[in-house]
Simulated scan of single mutants.
Amino acid sequence: MKDVFELTNERKIIAIPMGDAAGIGPEITVKSLSKEEIYGMCSPLVVGDADVIKKAIEVTGVALNVNIVSAPQEGKYEFGTVDVLDMNNIDIDALQPGEVQAQCGQAAFEFIKKSVELAMDGKVAALATTPINKESLKAANVPYIGHTEMLEDLGGAPDPLTMFQVNGMRIFFLTRHVSLKEAISQMTKERVRDYLNRCDLALQRLGVENRKLAVAGLNPHSGEGGLFGMEEVNEIGPGIEAAKKDGIDAYGPVPADSVFFQALNGKYDAVLSLYHDQGHIAAKMTDFHRTISITNGLPFLRTSVDHGTAFDIAWKNIAASVSMEECIKLAAEYAPKFTRESL
């Protein structure tokens, strides 16, 4: 990675890999790029298949022209035109909307791989990703189950850190896709300390100053000093104290029934959620469609919608583009502030 990242265009170029062609990715992409405000914030570049994008424009009825490019610098980046780096890897005549297809899984991987290459080479400032489908990837024998695993490998960054953002509230996750019983076993003081340090670094790379981090409690009222459980006393609390000694401005454990509300109202810059649903529920109840995921710990910035390919409504001009619009806007917001690590 080059230490100096510069783009001559003041509006940073955001790569948008098109996602699974049989899903709603192409539709929400063109709907988003039919919004003039997007072009006031960034220069969006679709990495996908031009024939599919043209078909999505036809289905949705948005007023867009397609400009096919072979490199980011060839883009017009003008409202009314969608710039497409055409991978030409979808047989449009064989495309079956709403169905698992190997060609779509393979193409989706190739869109992401190309986008990562552009980011690693400093040709684009960030990735704003659309949905992909695990079954389609499997049908194509792509050796990854999702975005995170792809980006971890392609970006050479083990154990990326997920952060949700919605209406200014940021949420990190101490544990991810494991049972609640297993998640509790992972709530060690060493892990809490490590994650608070990683969360602080992630916020720093996003340009957040004077970072205040809260840790959500596990048990009712954060255990009430051991009356309702000892996890806060034995592991979570000591982990927070250890992080404080590292220089992290950390607080808690704060009862989970109030900490997210407090963060939403500006008391904390981020909350470390202890398990998957604890943070997901808080974010999605705040605003389901505007909950955006940021993958931290990569050598480039990546934002993502937090929904799937929605095969049941794909190619019917039903899918709302709010999440995709917010995904692109968030990438544009953080891109000028983001600190890119050298490799």
Results as ranks from 00 to 15, higher is better:
Arg211Asp: 01
Asp306Thr: 04
Leu206Tyr: 04
Glu117Tyr: 05
Lys138Gln: 14
Gly226Glu: 10
Lys284Met: 13
Gly279Lys: 04
Gly266Asp: 12
Glu333Asn: 07
Ser43Lys: 04
Ser258Cys: 13
Leu206Met: 15
Val66Gln: 08
Gln278Met: 14
Val254Ser: 02
Glu58Thr: 14
Met87His: 00
Pro97Ile: 13
Thr286Lys: 06
Asp312Ala: 12
Pro72Arg: 10
Cys199Tyr: 00
Arg290Ser: 13
Gly237Ser: 14
Val100Leu: 02
Arg290Tyr: 00
Ile132His: 00
Ser323Leu: 01
Thr129Tyr: 02
Ile184Thr: 10
Ile13Leu: 11
Asp200Gln: 14
Glu58Val: 08
Asp277Ile: 11
Lys54Cys: 07
Ile57Gln: 04
Met150Ile: 14
Ala15Leu: 14
Ser115Tyr: 08
Gly19Cys: 10
Ile28His: 03
Lys113Thr: 09
Leu201Lys: 13
Met18Ala: 14
Asp249His: 15
Asp83Pro: 02
Met18Tyr: 09
Ala108Met: 12
Lys134His: 12
Arg11Ala: 05
Pro17Cys: 13
Asp249Pro: 04
Val46Pro: 02
Gly156Pro: 14
Ser293Pro: 00
Val66Pro: 02
Ala50Asn: 06
Pro255Arg: 06
Thr303Leu: 01
Gly223Cys: 10
Ala22Phe: 05
Ile14Asn: 04
Thr309Cys: 02
Ile171Val: 15
Asn317Glu: 04
Ala282Arg: 01
Ala56Cys: 11
Phe260His: 05
Ser179Phe: 12
Leu7Met: 14
Arg170Phe: 03
Arg176Ile: 13
Ala107Trp: 10
Ile132Ala: 03
Tyr144Gln: 03
Val259Cys: 13
Lys76Pro: 04
Asp83Gln: 10
Met285His: 14
Lys244His: 07
Ile38Gly: 00
Ala332Met: 05
Ser70Met: 13
Asn89Phe: 05
Asp194Lys: 10
Gly207Asn: 04
Gly98Arg: 09
Gly98His: 08
Val259His: 02
Ala320Gly: 11
Lys35Met: 13
Tyr275Val: 12
Leu343Asp: 02
His276Leu: 12
Asp200Thr: 10
Thr303Met: 00
Lys35Val: 14
Arg198Glu: 06
Asn89Arg: 14
Asp20Ser: 13
Leu206Val: 07
Ile90Pro: 12
Pro26Ala: 12
Glu341Gly: 04
Lys134Asn: 11
Ile171Ser: 01
Phe164Arg: 01
Thr339Arg: 05
Gly252Ala: 13
Ser115Glu: 06
Asp287Arg: 00
Asn167Phe: 06
Thr295Arg: 00
Lys189Glu: 09
Gly266Asn: 12
Leu272Ile: 13
Gly237Tyr: 06
Gln262Trp: 14
Val233Tyr: 04
Ala202Tyr: 02
Lys113Glu: 15
Pro253Ala: 11
Gln106Val: 03
Asp287Asn: 15
Ala283Met: 08
Gly207Lys: 01
Glu135Ala: 15
Pro158Val: 06
Cys199Gly: 05
Ile90Arg: 07
Thr81Lys: 08
Thr29Trp: 02
Ala126Tyr: 00
Glu326Met: 10
Val322Ala: 08
Glu99Val: 09
Thr303Asp: 02
Gly61Asp: 05
Ser258Asn: 12
Asn141Tyr: 11
Gly239Phe: 07
Arg193Ala: 01
Leu64Val: 08
Glu78Met: 14
Pro220Asp: 04
Leu298Ser: 03
Glu27Lys: 05
Lys316Phe: 07
